[in-house]
């Protein structure tokens, strides 16, 4: 059954709707793990919660990242680069 077919008496929503905000991105962040001091500032300030801590390292999950570059701007080590999307 599609979500729209659910038979609710009144306006109710169940399950999570997620806009595909990863598609919005014109640039993507890349962390230079060599320079990274593991301070976690990028995680604290990422508006979309796209930074993960994995075994002490910080990595970016690009699924919903909008490419705002806040992480790059806030990084005290300036170790996050913004790369134009469409380029390898």
């Amino acid at each position: 059954m599609s979500t729209l077919e659910k038979d609710y008496v009144c306006p109710v929503g169940e399950g999570i709707y997620a806009a595909n905000t990863g598609d919005w991105r014109t640039q993507r962040p890349e962390i230079d793990q060599e320079k990274c001091s593991r301070c976690g500032t990028c995680l604290l300030y990422c508006p979309t919660n796209s930074v993960r801590r994995v075994e002490g390292r910080f990595v970016i999950d690009l699924g919903y990242c909008k490419g705002c570059a806040v992480c790059a701007a806030e990084c005290p080590k300036q170790c996050i680069a913004m790369i134009r999307e469409g380029r390898k």
């Binding site: 609710y8 008496v9 009144c10 306006p11 109710v12 929503g13 169940e14 709707y17």
Partner: peptide
Amino acid sequence: HQILDPRKPMAIDP
């Protein structure tokens, strides 16, 4: 038909 209850999370009036 609807309830605001953390045990059964739902959105009211999306």
